[in-house]
Nucleic acid binder design. Structure first.
Length: 637
RNA sequence: GCCGAUGUAGCUCAGCCGGCAGAGCAACUGAUUCGUAAUCAGUAGGUCGCCAGUUCGAUUCUGGCCAUCGGCUCCA
């Protein structure tokens, strides 16, 4: 009796049972396919050697697909583990998945791996690839598998098998040559299919991601279908390095982080501060347009207030404290407390709501040393923070307005972002009912506004669930910037109320929200986003005057006076150097416009702008140039 | 906080087995007065991250601390 194989193009094939998926696929294509890495059997990924014994819906997984690449990388991680065990006898394997841009494998080994070990490992990997070992799948009972791995001294594999749910009776293993790994699969047919790979770095990683567990050694690598794709990726990594905000921050003289001042504390230089001022100035105006009130709280508040809010209990480890006249003060890690006191300063009516308190609030958080990272993770930062106090029925429209604000702001900077809803964490305050209510409110607002989102279980703030907006930087890292948090607890703890239509007291709801998040982090992400070449409206220096020779300095000075009088951010570069040198310097500073001033310009009372992408705009009047800059600022270009 | 690597001039980096500290760029001085990505010559510049120890002698070896980088964990 033949079985029926159905392909995605609806083509059907009648074949003898026992045919492999790979053979069936080659019949479908009428040829052996080199691009096939695995098959999809009834929608599930499987090896090409998988045998088909009944009617099946079959599809091909090609190396060009994300799924195919991920299978290839997973197979490379096996080859790497194989090589590591050959080179370093006694290394124990744990897990080795494929990840976004490559793969890793975690090992336990007495000696420390370093980058210098990579050539040895890669050499052995190439030998394993040249041997073209087939990946052979075998299924066995979990008892047998435990015995197998225990016999090989693979404690981590034994632990993995023992921790499987009780209803799992068999597991699968994969062999290539004399290497055996516990693995769900699928894998590429044989090691010889691997054409391009590279080991990248070694790092510590806790077993099963838990800091209470032993630290293993993780080797990261990447792999691609061919050398070309691998090289493209490596070049991309190089490019990403060039736009690292820490490097550009130094090169463009924007900021420093200095040991002598302290780790995680940013010192803004004139140009960095100007950039920051421009962003903050823009933001203040945008908030006023949207009905926010500007407020400002103190940097330190008495400890009792932090106890009342729950911060002392739940956030103490991240807070700094100071003592004055035998009074203990907490240095604020969040801005909400003062805003609560502003609300409480008088009796509120339902007619007053919503109240939107906005503060560019500077906070301090004691972050662990190992997590500090340029501007992206610091210990003192300024949030564009607001607390909205409203009636429960106003929640939906307020959340919507914030989401619109975020969308508008991200559009100005040209950022893509993803939305996540984070629910109640372990360490939290408030009742189950309030959490359910708050979570529902956020969820409904997202649904009503047709915003796509992902749920992040247990990732909320200690006082409420939140909607996070994550934007992507040049290194494809996601950064949380905007966030909306719904809070029933603080209004309760501070006994906030308003007089309703019925003349009775009611409890308002509070939304915590930021749009850019931390200004420092946002600037870091911006630097990488623009690779330091800021648009004209943001650029700390919008243009630079370049004289051809000394005799043009006097005229150039008059141009400079006109430009700065009109608020144009302009620099002078009148050094005794050739024009080519000055252009190169201005180019490396990524200044949007270079204004060349020579005989022609002096005679015609003009300037000759050259853009940083090498375009010459010809001689134009100073007034015309000012109008051009102003127009770009107006349009946020 | 944990694992590993690193810390030398303003910046980027050399410096072997312990014996007076090196380059390029930047800075400064002079010459040159030049039209769209580097003009030439000269001068100056250092607590070799910090603190101990070993040694006749430590940038080099050992220990502790601080910081940075790559990750893990945690987060705006």
């Amino acid at each position: 009796m033949d079985i029926k194989i159905i392909f995605p193009d609806k083509k059907e094939l009648a074949v003898k049972p026992g045919i492999t998926a790979g053979k069936a696929i080659s019949l479908w294509y009428n040829k052996a396919l080199d691009s096939a890495v695995a098959a999809k059997v009834n929608g599930k990924p499987a090896d090409l050697t998988y045998t088909l014994n009944e009617d099946t819906a079959l599809d091909i997984i090609e190396i060009s697909s994300d799924e195919g690449l991920s299978i290839l990388r997973h197979s490379i991680s096996h080859v790497m583990a194989h090589a590591v065990q050959d080179v370093f006898a006694g290394a124990k394997v744990s897990i080795g998945p494929s990840i976004e841009d490559g793969f890793y494998y975690d090992f336990e080994y007495a000696e420390k791996f370093t980058n210098d070990d990579f050539p040895k490992i890669e050499k052995r990997m190439r030998e394993i690839i040249a041997a073209d070992y087939p990946f052979i799948r075998e299924e066995m009972t979990r008892q047998k598998a435990v015995k197998l791995f225990a016999g090989r001294g693979e404690d981590y594999k034994v632990e993995l098998i023992n921790d499987l749910p009780t209803d799992v009776s068999t597991v699968s293993i994969y062999k290539d040559g004399d290497y055996i790994d516990l693995c769900r699969g699928p894998h590429i047919p044989s090691t010889g299919k691997i054409k391009a790979f590279k080991l990248l770095s070694v790092a510590g990683a806790y077993w099963r991601g838990d800091e209470k567990n032993k630290m293993l050694q993780r080797i990261y690598g990447t792999g691609f279908a061919d050398e070309q794709a691998l090289n493209d990726h490596l070049n991309l990594l190089e490019e990403a390095k060039k736009r690292d905000h820490r490097r550009l921050g130094k090169e463009l003289d924007l900021f420093q982080i200095n040991d002598e001042a302290g780790a995680g504390l940013v010192i803004f230089h004139p140009k960095g501060m100007l950039l920051r001022y421009i962003i903050e100035d823009w933001e203040r105006k945008e908030h006023l347009k949207r009905g926010y009130d500007m407020v400002m709280g103190p940097q330190i508040l008495k400890i009792d207030l932090w106890k009342k809010s729950g911060h002392f209990e739940h956030y103490r480890d991240n807070m700094y404290f100071t003592e004055i006249d035998e009074q203990v003060y907490g240095i604020k890690p969040m801005n909400c407390l003062a805003h609560m006191l502003i609300y409480k300063s008088k009796i509120r009516s339902y007619r007053d709501l919503p109240l939107r308190y906005f503060e560019l609030g500077t906070v301090h958080r004691h972050e662990k040393t190992g997590v500090l990272h340029g501007l992206l993770r610091v210990r003192q930062f300024t949030q564009d923070d607001a607390h909205i106090l409203c009636m429960p029925e106003q929640l939906n429209s307020e959340i919507r307005a914030i989401a619109d604000f975020v969308n508008y702001a991200m559009g100005i900077f040209g950022f893509e972002y993803e939305v996540e809803l984070s629910t109640r964490p372990q360490n939290s305050i408030g009742t189950d009912e309030d959490w359910a209510l708050a979570t529902k409110a956020l969820e409904n607002a997202l649904k009503d506004n047709k915003i796509n989102y992902k749920v992040n279980e247990g990732d909320g703030a200690f006082y409420g669930p939140k909607i996070d907006f994550k934007l992507k930087d040049a290194l494809k890292r996601k950064w949380q910037c905007a966030t909306i948090q719904c809070d029933f607890t603080l209004p309760e703890r501070f006994d906030l109320n308003y007089i309703g239509v019925d003349g009775e007291k009611h409890r308002p709801v509070m939304l915590h929200r930021v749009i850019l998040g931390a200004i420092e982090r946002f600037i870091g992400v911006l630097i990488e986003h623009y690779a330091g070449a800021f648009p004209v409206w943001l650029s700390p220096t919008q243009c630079i005057l370049l004289t051809v020779t000394d005799k043009h300095i006097n005229y150039a000075e008059t141009v400079y006076e006109k430009l700065i009088a009109d608020g144009i951010r302009c620099e002078k570069f009148f050094d005794n150097e050739k024009l080519g040198y000055k252009i190169r310097q201005a180019q490396m500073q990524k200044i949007p416009y270079m204004l060349v001033i020579g005989d022609k310009e002096m005679e015609g009372q003009t300037v000759a702008p050259r853009t940083r992408d090498g375009q010459n705009l010809g001689a134009i009047s100073v007034q015309k140039f000012i109008a051009l800059i102003n127009e770009m600022c107006e349009k946020k270009k």
